[in-house]
């Protein structure tokens, strides 16, 4: 049992608030991705969990034990650092073996675990080399191997694949997921790459300026973002938001009409791929500015009511820049947001 409970963690650097009452519960064996733009506090939160950074308030529990005041060494976790922190004065083998050696593991176990981690991360050829002779990506894999070798109950990873080329990253991602699942490792994984978060995580915690704004399964985060920020940050192309007026429970704009919660001004949110293309007078009136053929689909960029909108159209479509077409979002998949708070309004089950 090694779930993690983060309970109203606060962190201020001088006067700047880096973490604002962050709470998060990670179940035993769960894989949670911390996703957010640069500077939103991901690394800071991870370092507080590890005990490397002092906190200004709140508690951290690991496996039902309050570890808030324990030293990093006593928290029973492993970590992959954003800037690797691979020891330059040790060979790759000794780096990977480091955690086991400090725990005085028997030599045979050290060898076995190191070899397994090395194999997984494709670093067997470099085991006898010194890190100075490795590329950034290779060093990063050494850092991941070092963390996996100790078979931790809790694993913290700070952008562990950010320096790998696309192909290797895809492969590592799959391997990592498999290994961690088999071992039942509780994992907190920091990334600002949303496809990585979507692909790996059981749940995604989206952070924005020191807060967790939504924590849900990848599909929920994608389909039902809790705020306009989440909708805009997760998914490519980002979710579209169009201002729309709601009178007597029905929101209307151009030729589009749908049942909507609340009253007055609303934001209509929809994903670029959840639309049907129709005649200009039916649906939202979309002024096409650019049409980019992407192979599997065509990406149309333009405006609806002067708002930038991107939609995905089937390959066969013939539209030219300057043309107007009708866009009909799938009513089952739209979201409604308050323009004042940017927060989602409850869906109306009709």
């Amino acid at each position: 049992m090694a779930g993690i409970v983060i309970d109203r963690i606060e962190k201020t650097f001088g006067t700047a608030k880096a973490l604002d009452a962050v709470s998060l519960t990670v179940a035993d064996g769960e894989f949670v991705a911390l996703l957010g733009p640069s500077g939103c506090g991901k690394t800071t939160l991870l370092r507080i969990i590890a005990g490397l950074e002092s906190r200004s308030g709140g508690r951290v529990l690991i496996g039902d034990r309050d570890v808030s005041d324990l030293r990093p060494a006593d928290r029973g976790l492993a970590m992959v650092f954003q800037n690797y922190a691979v020891f330059p004065h040790m060979t790759v083998f000794e780096n990977v073996a480091f955690g086991l050696r400090t725990k005085n593991a028997p030599e045979e176990k050290v060898r076995r675990n190191v070899m397994r981690a090395a194999e997984l991360l494709h670093i067997e050829p470099y085991l006898e080399r010194y890190p100075a002779k490795l590329s950034g990506g290779q060093r990063q894999r050494v850092a991941v191997a070092r963390a996996l070798a100790v078979e931790p109950a809790v694993l913290l990873m700070d952008e562990p694949l950010s320096n790998l080329d696309a192909l290797l990253r895809l492969e590592m991602r799959a391997d990592l997921k498999r290994v961690l699942q088999e071992a039942g490792t509780t994992t907190v994984y920091v990334t600002h790459d949303q496809t990585e978060a979507m692909g790996l995580a059981d749940r995604i915690a989206v952070m924005h300026s020191g807060r967790i704004v939504q924590c849900d399964t990848p599909m929920t985060v994608y389909a039902a973002p809790a705020t306009t920020f989440v909708g805009g940050f997760v998914g490519s192309p980002p979710m579209n938001f169009v201002p729309i007026r709601n009178e007597d429970g029905r929101a209307r704009l151009d030729g589009f009409e749908a049942t909507a919660p609340g009253t007055g001004e609303l934001l209509l949110g929809f994903r670029g791929e959840d639309v049907r293309i129709d005649a200009p007078e039916r649906g939202l009136s979309f002024a096409v500015a650019v049409a980019e053929p992407m192979g599997s689909h065509v990406l149309l960029t333009g405006t609806i009511a002067d708002k930038l909108v991107r939609v995905v159209a089937p390959t066969g479509i013939r539209v030219a820049a300057g043309e107007r077409i009708g866009i009909v979002p799938d009513p089952e998949r739209v979201v409604w947001m308050s323009p004042e708070t940017g927060a989602a309004l409850p869906r109306i089950i009709s």
Binding site: A50, R71, A73, G99, T102, K103, V150
Partner: peptide, 12 residues
């Protein structure tokens, strides 16, 4: 971070 990594992996 070198020191921090050592702490995380069990060193005082």
């Amino acid at each position: 971070e070198f020191e921090e990594a050592a702490w995380v992996f069990g060193c005082t």
